[in-house]
Design a binder for these strands. Structure first.
Lengths: 152, 152
DNA sequence: GCATTAAGGTCAATATATTGACATAAATAA
DNA sequence: TTATTTATGTCAATATATTGACCTTAATGC
């Protein structure tokens, strides 16, 4: 009458659970570290995405959704907040009139520089005890997990 | 007049950013995988915590906050929802009248068994390409990151 | 006994996250 | 040219997450 009880592979559960915990802690202490700038860890990810040299001309909303792996609706609210404090701007794409390009403002660039000072301290604390090779391995593992978990 | 521009260590940014992405994807596709049971990935973490043999007698709310690394207020809402569908129960602690012990109900145990069937499939997909040693290494790295990021 | 501390619940405000739905405008395909 | 698709924005409902505050009750320290 009842299905056999399933025992999950312990290492699998542990890995997924560790991801849970680490993600919770990251958002909390990341946002705390950025407290003086008044930016959340998620908002930092948006600013960081825009600061890459290859996106000098800005990113479209859809591109950024795919890059950050959040829904358009979630991103839209973050962009509204960042636009309200003047860190980003939505500008019309010349070639495609439907598209907007999200760009960093001068004020956003200054904020990001301040953020990076704070992040440098944060990163040093976070990476303590992990060699460069460890960090590279960890990125590889996370990339693999991310891709395996992706819907498409 | 302006501080020197900070260039963050690329591997550090990448690692943290990968954690962002992976956590986003995990919650989305984890919840999707559990869709038929009507439980979110976060609620699964609560049920999972309670299913461990060492917590046969239940966990206090504070213990579970520390374990899941979420605030009491967040946990409280999750417990309310799980209690509303009958998967968990808050029972008085005999020894400490202030404490409640969160326990899995029979219905919760059945749901968890169904969840575990779904999770087994999910885990197989997620862990593809990662050897057991890889998984163990990844857990070690995440544990290190989690502890380094913890406030206390 | 009385003051303090601890455990838990809840309210508020805010930010993030999802899906689904609907609207508009513009590009593209038939 | 018309139909469809694409890009974006927004509303709704819901779940998760934070901090801070306040309340009750109970254990503990003095």
């Amino acid at each position: 009458m009842s299905k056999k009880n399933i025992e999950l592979d312990e290492i699998h559960s542990r890995l997924i659970f560790r991801l849970f915990q680490t993600s919770n802690v990251m958002h909390r202490s990341g946002t705390l570290a950025l407290n003086s700038v008044g930016v959340t860890s998620q908002q930092w990810s948006v600013l960081g995405a825009l600061s890459r040299p290859k996106v000098e001309a800005g990113m479209t909303v859809n591109d950024m959704c795919r890059y950050l792996m959040v829904s358009r609706q979630s991103l839209s609210l973050m962009l509204n907040r960042l636009e309200a404090v003047g860190y980003v701007k939505r500008i019309q794409d010349k070639r495609d009139q439907r598209s907007k390009r999200i760009v960093l403002t001068e004020s956003g660039r200054e904020a990001l520089n301040e953020i990076n000072h704070l992040m440098q301290v944060f990163f040093e604390k976070v990476m303590k005890g992990l060699s460069r090779d460890d960090q590279i391995s960890c990125v590889h593992y996370l990339t693999r997990l991310r891709d395996n978990m992706s819907i498409d």
